[in-house]
Every structure is written in C-alpha cells, then in structure tokens.
Amino acid sequence: MIDLDDLDRALLRALAADASQSAGALGRNLGLSQPATWRRIRRLEQAGILAGRRLDLDKTRLGFGVTVFLGIKLAARGRTSLEDFERAISAIPEVQAVHHVLGRFDYRVRVVARDLADFERVLRRRVMTLPSVGDIESNVVLSEEIRPGPLRAATGSVD
C-alpha cells in the first residue's frame, strides 16, 4: 500500500463523486496543474487503488423497478463445481452481482427485474433451473441508500 497525502485523498473523493472529470478540471479544483493531477491518477492506478472507472446506470429509468437479493444454498457441492455455478448464474442478464459468502447460504446474488412478475419469471426459468441450486431466499429491496463506504474513513475528512 502506498502512503496517501491529503491531495491524494481529496483526489479520490473527487473521483468517487464524479469519475468523468478531466485531469485539468480535477487539478483546478485541487490547486494542481493538469500534468501533476494526471501523474497522481496514474500513480494511484499503478498502485491498484484506482482499479477502474464505471458508469452508473439508473435501473428504474431503464425499466428495472425491482431489485432482489437472493440467498442461494447449493444442494450438492460434488456434482457441480463452484466455478460452474458462478459461470452459470453470472450468465443470467438480470444478475448484477454474485458474492460467494460464509453463513447459511453459499451465495448472495443481486437481481434486477422490470416488476415482480418479471422477477418470478427470472427466478423460475433461470435461477431455479441451474444445477445444484438448493434452498433460495428472496429479499425484495424497498429502498436503497448509497453510502460512500470506507472511502471517507480511509482517506480522512477534508471537509
């Protein structure tokens, strides 16, 4: 892990808020030149702290009004490898994330659907037909609050 100074932390917060900003715009906001900002970004990328930039899509505006978290317990571990299950569940277009976890379930899976009827179709025709699927628990998301996560704590507050 590299040592982060206050400017690195401020840069990470600015990128977390809007990763589409140019190095010039970021530099102006942080009191750095564009080349100095770009060098810091490259250093953070090379250290693996910045692992990429992503585009956030509004699921609701795209017609996906329901998000469901599934807990999936595999029925028989010997018949299908974990990698085979992960590959099969990840191939379902409505599946947004697959987490192999400890606890009552083997996997936690985030699924989006247009509505509850669409979710039922995905569950019955796609998820429940996968080999080795045993117990399934569904939790429909009622609301979601996006939190900055550990970034604020890890980078310190410069507010």
Score class of each variant (00 low, 15 high):
47 A>T: 06
124 R>H: 09
98 V>A: 01
128 M>P: 07
35 P>L: 15
74 L>F: 04
113 A>M: 04
40 R>F: 08
118 D>S: 07
98 V>F: 07
51 A>L: 09
127 V>D: 11
56 D>A: 12
25 A>P: 04
43 R>N: 00
43 R>Q: 02
38 W>N: 04
65 G>L: 15
23 A>N: 08
87 R>H: 03
123 L>Q: 02
115 D>H: 00
115 D>W: 02
59 K>M: 14
61 R>I: 09
143 S>R: 14
141 V>F: 02
90 S>Q: 04
102 L>R: 02
157 S>D: 15
33 S>K: 11
47 A>L: 08
142 L>F: 13
132 S>T: 12
136 I>G: 01
77 R>Y: 12
143 S>K: 14
116 L>E: 10
47 A>C: 03
55 L>D: 05
141 V>S: 00
69 F>P: 03
71 G>F: 12
138 S>Y: 13
39 R>N: 10
87 R>T: 13
43 R>K: 09
121 R>F: 09
145 E>Q: 11
117 A>Q: 14
80 T>S: 12
78 G>W: 14
89 I>W: 10
110 R>F: 09
106 D>W: 10
49 I>R: 00
57 L>P: 09
111 V>E: 03
55 L>K: 14
62 L>I: 01
128 M>G: 04
123 L>W: 09
30 L>T: 06
100 H>C: 06
72 I>V: 12
42 R>Q: 15
75 A>V: 04
83 E>G: 05
105 F>E: 03
140 V>F: 12
97 A>C: 13
36 A>R: 10
112 V>M: 14
137 E>K: 02
143 S>P: 13
131 P>G: 02
65 G>V: 11
58 D>W: 04
20 S>I: 01
104 R>G: 04
31 G>A: 04
39 R>H: 11
143 S>W: 13
22 S>K: 03
21 Q>K: 07
76 A>G: 05
125 R>W: 05
23 A>I: 01
142 L>P: 10
112 V>D: 13
33 S>E: 06
135 D>M: 11
141 V>H: 00
88 A>C: 00
30 L>V: 10
120 E>C: 00
37 T>S: 03
27 G>P: 12
120 E>N: 02
82 L>M: 13
149 G>P: 15
32 L>V: 10
32 L>S: 02
153 A>R: 06
36 A>F: 08
125 R>E: 14
49 I>Q: 01
36 A>L: 08
